[in-house]
Write a protein that binds this DNA or RNA. Structure first.
Length: 563
DNA sequence: GCCGTTTTCGGCCCGACTGTTTTCAGTCG
């Protein structure tokens, strides 16, 4: 609706109201349909950004599957016109112009018109703009999507490291969705403080990582990197560091909310500082902004306009879990199945990280591709874990297994064997394509087994590779609560499963989360950082995390479900 | 179209860069 209204050159605030509502709906942890089902129009209107008008639209959509005002707009502007706005460099104004004057309503027609010289007849469009449109189309066709945080973060850190060598650099910080640790990153935003911005700009666009320069100004430049990502660097003076980091970190919706709040208090916030009238009252430190607004500090990971500002007003911001709070890793594979290292090697590496324990959780017989262990092999393997535990000092090795959940919801080991295993992870590794209700029943049935401690990667998604299987996650979480089962947050950046939104939901239900790496080699133990970041996005604290408890306490907690 | 610790009406975040212009509109984040 928002895009279509934009094409209709509607009131910009009306356009933004739809945008805002859409964004809030997207971030809801509850399904909009169930909100309506339980509380009708009133419940819908309680969602921030949804008022009477949009609530009625939603009702119409739920009841009829259609929206008349949307259909009417589509009659005026063909759907394909929307793909033009999606091209970088083309906004609503240009799209309207192209449509009105040349009847262009698709990318294909635009490309033709660009090549046969028709575009140059249009007012305000000359060679450069046409060139930009064409490279925008090329970019879109290469499908520049979002990147996994696991790819983006190390790359950004490498760029920061290169730029840091310049003596003109004062401070340098990756900001944007990277600093908020979103699971996927659209582009890399880097903030630099310096008295000599021109030097920084010059060095940045000449970095070996740079493929193409999109824009270069005195204090701000954008490039496309060789890995296909876009990177933006912004330079401000050192005294504006706090305000600039804050502004550049976002999220956009969070920033808007905070600036609106500032206006009500007679203040103005921009990337240079915080002002009362013409007087600058702060901005060197990020905390200046929170202080001026009477808010407690909000960590970047939860700046998503999802209630954190209200919480900060009341001083209710959680103390988010940190990497140093993690006492051990509970999901680890070895050479016995598809891992690369031995039990002893994994234990030594875990000890180096300062952990007090680790659980060895190899695959069971049904996961044949991974060399899953038969019952007999599992017994021998458990003995090997015991042996390793005796040999190694300073860290405890826990006897675990990652057991398969069969299509009927049974596990692929009998209870008589499961009860010998001190930590049992239950996972779906086959039959991903089941229907939603069957899959939900399957998982819940596995959780009802008293020997199952942790539900592994609850949705099976592989970010950018494989969709989550169809499952009613709300029902699964409720069952986890009812059965006393823990839920995994698999920290491998390609999984991050459970996701942030449902971590928060799990916390509200009082379910403990196990943050793990699912390591298949010693180096993968370092992926814990991504798990912790994702947990922080889910508002999780130390007390919400199973593996933040010391060994003795952990063992007691694992025993609870079996008593 | 939404919203309210001044408001139920009158506001709605803020600034950089580009390309095309003779002072600014469009786009982006």
């Amino acid at each position: 609706m928002s895009l279509l209204l934009e094409l209709g050159e509607e009131n910009p605030f009306r356009i933004r109201a739809y945008q805002k509502a859409a964004q809030n709906i997207e971030n809801l942890s509850e399904d909009l349909g169930s909100i309506y089902k339980s509380g009708g129009l009133t419940a819908l209107e309680n969602v921030p950004g949804i008022g009477k008008g949009i609530a009625e639209h939603i009702e119409e959509l739920i009841k009829t599957g259609k929206l008349k005002s949307h259909d009417d707009l589509l009659k005026k502007f063909p759907k394909s016109l929307l793909e033009l706005i999606a091209v970088p460099g083309i906004g609503p104004k240009t799209a309207i112009l192209l449509h009105k004057k040349l009847k262009i309503d698709s990318i294909d027609k635009l490309e033709k018109a660009a090549k046969n010289g028709e575009l140059e007849k249009l007012p305000g469009i000359r060679a450069k703009k046409i060139q930009n449109m064409l490279s925008g189309i090329a970019m879109k066709k290469r499908n520049i999507g979002r990147f996994s945080i696991g790819d983006a973060l190390p790359y950004a850190e490498a760029i920061v490291k290169s730029l840091k060598k310049l003596k003109e650099v004062d401070k340098i910080v990756p900001c944007g969705s990277l600093r908020r640790a979103k699971e996927t990153i659209g582009d890399i935003d880097i903030l630099v403080t310096s008295k000599k911005p021109k030097k920084i700009m010059g060095a940045f666009i000449k970095l070996p990582h740079v493929e193409r320069v999109l824009a270069k100004g005195e204090t701000k430049s954008s490039v496309i990197l060789k890995n296909g990502m876009q990177a933006d660097v912004r330079v401000v003076e050192p005294k504006s560091f706090g305000a600039a980091v804050y502004y550049f970190t976002g999220s956009k919706q969070h920033n808007i909310q905070v600036r609106e709040m500032a206006i009500k208090k007679g203040l103005k916030i921009n990337e240079y500082g915080i002002y009362r009238g013409n007087k600058r009252i702060g901005g060197a430190e990020e905390n200046d902004i929170f202080k001026a607004l009477g808010l407690s500090y909000i960590p970047p990971e939860i700046r998503e306009a999802q209630g954190e500002i209200e919480a900060a007003k009341k001083g209710n911001i959680p103390i988010l879990v940190e990497l140093k709070d993690i006492k051990g890793d509970l999901h680890i594979h070895t050479k016995a199945t598809d891992g690369a290292n031995t039990i002893e090697e994994m234990a030594a590496a875990a000890k180096k990280l300062g952990y007090g324990y680790l659980a060895i959780t190899d695959h069971t017989k049904s996961t044949r591709v991974a060399g899953g262990l038969t019952e007999k092999e599992a017994m021998a393997h458990l003995k090997k874990i015991d042996l390793a535990n005796k040999k190694i000092s300073g860290i405890r090795v826990i006897r675990g297994m990652e057991v398969d959940i069969l299509p009927d919801g049974k596990l692929d080991y009998p209870d008589s064997l499961l009860k010998e295993i001190d930590i049992v992870f239950a996972s779906i590794h086959s039959h991903f394509k089941m229907g939603r209700s069957d899959m939900t029943k399957r998982i819940i049935s596995a959780m009802k087994n008293r020997y199952v401690h942790v539900l592994s990667h609850p949705t099976g998604r592989l970010i950018g590779q494989r969709e989550a299987y169809e499952v009613d996650l709300d029902a699964v979480l409720k069952a986890a609560k009812d059965t006393g089962t823990f839920v995994e947050l698999n920290g491998n950046p390609i999984r991050l499963d459970l996701d942030d939104i449902h971590c928060r939901k799990a916390k509200e239900l009082g379910i403990l989360i196990a943050i793990t790496t699912d390591s298949h080699s010693v180096t993968q133990l370092d992926l814990m950082r991504y798990g912790v970041l994702a947990a922080r996005r889910g508002w999780l604290e130390k007390k919400d995390i199973l593996n933040c408890f010391p060994y003795e306490k952990l063992i007691k907690m694992l025993a609870l479900k079996r008593t």
